[in-house]
């Protein structure tokens, strides 16, 4: 059992293992997102208040979920890297960061687009959008800090510490932004905190969320593989691999 995990935690072992795993997640992501998009956009009923514009929820909510989950995943990877010195964890965190920033951006963009029919403006200082914007800055900070170090190992450690500090702060930021928002705009309704959605509306949403998570795992596996190759390019097994492939 332990030997299996040990092998998995080594870049070489993970590289072989993930090669078998990642196609399944890519396939799952394609099927789920495809089904979710068709169902959500074509068959789910229109919202009685917002009409068809509510359908952007099928992109916005999964993206927002992922944006937060990826940061937590990066923090966990950072913890594993700092405590047990497993370099694979840091490689995974490196691979995840751009996707997380991208998802945050998608959530922001879809929120802004949603704002046009809902509020009549491209941007509203809505509590969720505001904390999403701050999360976006946190992502940029982590990516920039990693890049700012000359030594890769120091950059990895610094990014890990910052991610862990950030993940402790995310709930505090969320809570304080919500408090701020209710103090200033008690009347406006928030785009996603709405009462009971009928089944035919939230089921496609659930499928989309699952699809996005599969997509996240698939992208992480694939990107981690390329980070492994890049970092271990001096190692013999990578050279042999390159030799085999031509």
């Amino acid at each position: 059992m332990w030997a299996f995990f040990h092998k998995l935690a080594s870049p070489k072992g993970f590289y072989a293992f993930s090669a078998r795993l990642s196609p399944w997640f890519w396939a799952a992501a394609a099927v789920l997102i495809g089904a979710g998009v068709v169902w959500g956009l074509a068959f789910a009923p229109a919202d009685y208040q917002q009409g068809n514009s509510f359908r952007i929820i099928y992109v916005h909510v999964p993206a927002a979920f992922l944006a937060q989950s990826i940061f937590v995943a990066m923090a966990l990877a950072g913890l594993v890297f700092m405590v047990w010195k497993i370099k694979l964890a840091d490689m995974a965190a490196t691979a995840m960061a751009p996707l997380g920033a991208g998802m945050t951006f998608v959530a922001l963009l879809s929120g802004a687009v949603w704002g046009v029919p809902t509020w009549g403006t491209w941007w509203q200082w809505d509590a969720r959008l505001t904390s999403m914007l701050i999360l976006f800055f946190l992502y940029i900070g982590v990516i920039a800090l990693r890049g700012a170090f000359d030594g890769r190992d120091s950059g990895s450690r610094a990014a890990s510490v910052l991610t862990m500090v950030g993940v402790i702060n995310i709930p505090i930021i969320k809570y304080s932004v919500e408090w701020w928002y209710t103090l200033h705009q008690p009347a406006t309704f928030s785009i996603t905190s709405r009462p009971a959605m009928p089944v035919e509306m939230w089921l496609p949403l659930l499928i989309m969320v699952l699809g996005f998570y599969s997509f996240f795992i698939a992208v992480t596996l694939t990107r981690t593989r390329s980070v492994i190759l890049h970092r271990e390019s001096a190692k013999r097994w990578v050279r042999e691999l390159a030799g085999e492939d031509g």
Binding site: F137, L138, L162, G166, N169, S176, V177
Partner: peptide, 10 residues
């Protein structure tokens, strides 16, 4: 500034 300002929001 980039690292610290988001944490200053609360």
């Amino acid at each position: 500034s980039l690292l610290v300002l988001p944490l200053y929001v609360p």
